[in-house]
Nucleic acid binder design. Structure first.
Lengths: 196, 196
DNA sequence: CGGTCTCTTGACGGAGTTCAAAGCTAGTGG
DNA sequence: CCACTAGCTTTGAACTCCGTCAAGAGACCG
């Protein structure tokens, strides 16, 4: 059953008894999000964090000129939410939608905090997951400050090898921080040597 | 005593008994880092996380062209380390040094993990601190993808109002992601209208 | 097939960089 | 307390990377 994917992720960091797994599953909600459907819309409150069992979600913000900037892709095995809205229960500035039909388990912040008291090991698990997310976010910040668009594209290909051929190229551009036109020129016209 | 600053930060999120405070303090090391001295050098391992009691630290990476990119400033009340190296105990690519004489409490990863078992509330505290750091890091990523250098300078002034006049301008440039020359032009020559 | 969305390509423009030089500030030593 | 040096800031001109705008060429879906 698909719940095993989530349990498998947990077992990498903590050991849960059968009873604890049972208790946890009572707090989860299974949901299918069809391609192009939304899990979270700007202005709403992120009441839940989602664990992706299959498919792929993305979170992004829309700037004042209407351009999308992708914060995170979440393929199988990843957690995704707007952490700001999730922990403060204030309105989100992000949007989360599905790039393809996607199965998720949802855990509400309310239930998460209850579980932290009932099963302290779960608080440990999420502490570790959050630490790792912070490492990734900080690394991406450094990459954006230090590297050229071309180098960032290379890193994207290494980070999300399964996605490269499965999603529109304009989404990759919105992730690495360039326009779709420029990414296209990077991949094709790439060698723009001045003619001799 | 300066330990009260740290306890005060903890009490914002959790309640510690006198015994627990005592136990915690046995695991902390107080240290003074003079201006320009290093807390962490590229190639070392970040064995500790630091809580700043007074003064200010910064963490930064050096790119292949020798340019510094500042990830974080840590004035009074902030925690700082290289989270990647701290949790993996692998070699760091970051450097942490002091912008002025700075007092810190150091907590080693080893001791932190012991404390998480002895005082689960501390794991909660660091879970919350890490969640908040993640929110800040993700927001900065969005800002770097969406905003102009001028707008990012404005945000810096709001985020670190106490630092603006206390640190060299080139450090602000290295934080917002422009050259010192360009930041200078932003502040002065600012209105570069084409002559009529 | 037709329409919409995506990808490509090119000419032009602009935000930010590079390099260089000169003025300023601040720390250091006598 | 002054002098000297080293680093910081400013300013300018040339340049680069990447964005903008526009038009055409696929690619997907009903």
């Amino acid at each position: 059953m698909s719940l095993q994917k989530l349990i498998g992720s947990l077992q990498k960091h903590i050991a849960l008894s059968a009873q604890e797994q049972e208790l946890l599953s009572d707090f989860l909600v299974f949901k299918i999000i069809k391609k192009r459907q939304f899990l979270l819309h700007e202005g709403q409150i992120a009441r839940e964090v989602a664990f992706v069992v299959s498919g792929c979600l993305r979170s992004y913000s829309i700037d004042q000129n209407g351009f999308e900037h992708i914060l995170q892709f979440a393929p199988t095995g990843w957690w995704i939410t707007d952490m700001y809205s999730f922990i403060s229960q204030q309105q989100t500035h992000l949007t989360i939608d599905a790039l393809m039909d996607t199965e998720v388990y949802l855990l509400s912040r309310e239930n998460q905090l209850i579980l932290f008291d009932k099963i302290p090991k779960l608080e440990r698990y999420f502490r570790i997951v959050t630490e790792n997310s912070l490492v990734g976010s900080r690394q991406r910040l450094i990459d954006n400050l230090s590297l050229t668009a071309s180098q960032r594209y290379g890193i994207f290909c290494n980070t999300y090898p399964t996605l490269i051929h499965d999603i529109p190229q304009k989404l990759i551009a919105a992730y690495i921080g360039v326009t779709p036109e420029f990414l296209s020129k990077l991949k094709n016209g790439g060698a723009k040597t001045k003619k001799s």
